[in-house]
Simulated assay, not measured.
Amino acid sequence: MFSREESKQIREQFWIFFGKRYPRKWLLYDTKVKEINLKFSFDNQKAMVSFDIETRDEIFREFYFDKFISLKNLLKAEISDDIILEKDYLRSSGKIISRIYITKYEVNIHNKKHWPEVFEFFNNTMPKFELFWYEYQDIITA
């Protein structure tokens, strides 16, 4: 087990190393739609790339999620058959969001032997999400 401080340092190291290995500007929060973010996440059990639809307004969240649902076949064709669209995703914080995501299981941020595998997963998956956003953002936000 790691102390809270040790865990924090390991997480920081991971993101620093990832940034050095793949030094580019990722889209992430710069979707120009405050309710939709593109995210990387990595914890003790999994790594994930996702579109997160976060808003307190249920109507907006459902509106944007329905747009992604209408593009489901394209999401599967252009990103992966393994993509999951979850309208009511419960975050560890207790907040409910909508999430469109791909997960890599059986990896742990505290195990540095898993890092190259996750680096590769992020580097292969995130560009597909970004390209999808650039291609279909007008449909998603219309």
Rank of each mutant, 00 (worst) to 15 (best):
T31R: 00
R21Y: 11
Y64N: 11
I16P: 04
R21E: 15
D138T: 07
V49H: 04
F18D: 00
E54Q: 13
D138A: 06
F18M: 02
Q9I: 14
K46V: 08
I102R: 08
R21V: 11
Y101Q: 11
W26D: 08
L131C: 03
Y29R: 13
E6T: 10
I96R: 11
S70M: 13
D82M: 13
I83T: 15
E120F: 07
N124K: 13
S70L: 13
M126S: 10
K76D: 09
F119L: 05
F42K: 01
I102K: 10
I16V: 15
L75Q: 03
R91A: 10
D82Y: 14
K39A: 02
I100C: 03
Y101V: 06
F2S: 05
R91L: 15
E106D: 13
N44P: 02
V49S: 09
L85Q: 03
R91M: 12
N73Y: 13
F119Q: 04
Y22F: 13
F51Q: 08
R91P: 01
K76G: 07
F132L: 06
T55S: 12
K76S: 10
R56N: 12
E35G: 04
Q13H: 12
S80W: 01
K87D: 12
A47V: 05
Q45Y: 12
F132I: 08
K67A: 14
F129N: 12
G94E: 00
L85D: 04
E78S: 14
I140R: 10
M126R: 06
F40H: 07
W26Q: 04
K8D: 13
T141R: 06
D30M: 04
N124G: 06
F2P: 00
A77L: 11
I140H: 10
P116F: 07
S3K: 06
A47P: 04
V107F: 09
Y101C: 07
N108C: 08
W26A: 09
F122V: 05
K46H: 09
S98T: 13
K20T: 11
N73D: 15
S92L: 11
F121S: 03
L27C: 01
A77I: 12
I59E: 03
E12D: 10
F60V: 08
S70V: 14
S50G: 07
F42P: 02
K34S: 08
L85K: 02
R24C: 10
E130D: 04
K128A: 03
E5K: 15
E86Q: 01
G94V: 08
I69Y: 11
Y29P: 04
